[in-house]
Design a protein around this nucleic acid. Sequence first.
DNA 1: ACTCATTATGTAGTAAATTTACAAATATTC
DNA 2: GAATATTTGTAAATTTACTACATAATGAGT
Lengths: 285, 285
Amino acid sequence: MTSEPNLLAVIQRQLNELNKSEAKVAQAILNAPEEATRSSIASLAAAAGVSEPSVNRFCKRFGATGFPDFKLQLATSLASGVRYVSRAVEFSDDINTFPTKLFDNAINALMTAKEELPLKAIARAVDQIAQARRVYFFGLGTSAAVARDAEHKFFRFNVPVFTHEDPLMQRMLAASAGVGDLFFFISHTGRTKVLVEAAEIARQTEATIVSLTAEGSPLADQSHYCINVKIEEDTEQYLPMTSRLVQLVILDVLAAGVTLRRGEGFTPHLARIKDSLKDTRFPTS
Amino acid sequence: MTSEPNLLAVIQRQLNELNKSEAKVAQAILNAPEEATRSSIASLAAAAGVSEPSVNRFCKRFGATGFPDFKLQLATSLASGVRYVSRAVEFSDDINTFPTKLFDNAINALMTAKEELPLKAIARAVDQIAQARRVYFFGLGTSAAVARDAEHKFFRFNVPVFTHEDPLMQRMLAASAGVGDLFFFISHTGRTKVLVEAAEIARQTEATIVSLTAEGSPLADQSHYCINVKIEEDTEQYLPMTSRLVQLVILDVLAAGVTLRRGEGFTPHLARIKDSLKDTRFPTS
DNA sequence: ACTCATTATGTAGTAAATTTACAAATATTC
DNA sequence: GAATATTTGTAAATTTACTACATAATGAGT
């Protein structure tokens, strides 16, 4: 079953080539698609002003095995279309609306990112991280928090990991890098000067440069390997809210990739790290 | 029509509270969701090993008017592309499967959190933050990165914001707190001793204590206001991956709430902050 | 313009699927 | 262990969808 991404568009396109009664059915469906998914064949036939078998024939014409199957395809098609709409928070919003909007935006961002994941770039980045002698995560502003998060994740792999928010430290570390060092730059825009400059400095050494940033940005240009994250429109007026979520999940993906690379024998090591925290917590009652 | 964004997650979550036969139906659906959307009630009943009316009752229990309506909702929910409920990464996974799994898990976590958002607690927290004289964000480990992110967000509101990862600093600052100070504790488990102790110390002052943590935890007990985040099962064996995403989005929600509270006249101030970064970036070509 | 062939549409009956009402079985409480 | 409540299944009723066939409409050729 080749589930058509947009059934309504297909119907619309074929409107001319349909018989009179089939066209009536098409029109009825186009007028109220959601309702059509909930109707019985009888009520849809009535709404279109045709007989039930006409509706049935219509369905088969569009590749369905029958009316129920057609409804299913229609519902599927409608569901995937509605999804990707980001809604900005407005001053007229209240506690019942804006939290949902923000969550929806976050979910949408992740779904979009998931569909266009640069898998090859991710795979290559995993390779590089797995064999690095040292890893530096550099970011500024919001991305500094992401870098910090990455640090907490990657130190588990027995690779020394460093993070610095100080641009001067970043420059100096970049300058003193050598073979086996990996610099991982994180930036939403990929245009932050001091960060790009640090990348340029690192580029002149033997170190490997990986970045998680916008495609075609100056930072991407400086990188040996770049994981592109689509820069979305500025729905959220004043803060990059969703992009850092995507960055975090991609870093999770990288960490998982390295774990898989290390193999099953590595699990006890991770378990030991986890256990080490046991005594810092109040026991569960 | 309350079209459920992720019906499978809802089913999964309620598995325990179902009767024997309803649980069988649930299992059958979770095993092969897309097949279920194409089955008749009879074949699904057979697959689950129960009678047809049991399937029907199951559907109604989940808000559908009947079996066809349920299939529709299920198809709609599946169409979003977020497949299974929570899938752990396994060593047999490769680059084509584990990134998707991690994204799906993240998306699911946000969807679940969205459904059970503690709106009243959020509203109260917004109130408190909006009128605080000073705000401290305290977290440790992964939550330290979240706290850092919060700092980047909330300083924009003309309220002094502080973050410290050092437990000793946290204690000392807690001890020296006074009226108008707000301590915002972030913790996945709510059981980290040094953090809870800092909260206890702060509690003895005039300061307000807000936490973003697990319900019923020691940290929650120390808080005047607690935003509960459901602690999910430990699918991710060794790292809390999804919970921090939820924490971040909830902090976005709080920030948005404070922005709305400040009113429209506050927008220029935010714009000025944004503009201040302009010269740090390479211009867009 | 008329007939024949072709296509389109509807009618009616049939089969299938879903739901309801009720009865049997199982679990729960006192 | 009896009484009650809950769960589950059986069987009938109802709704829904499909098939076969008949009628109507359309178009081509004479």
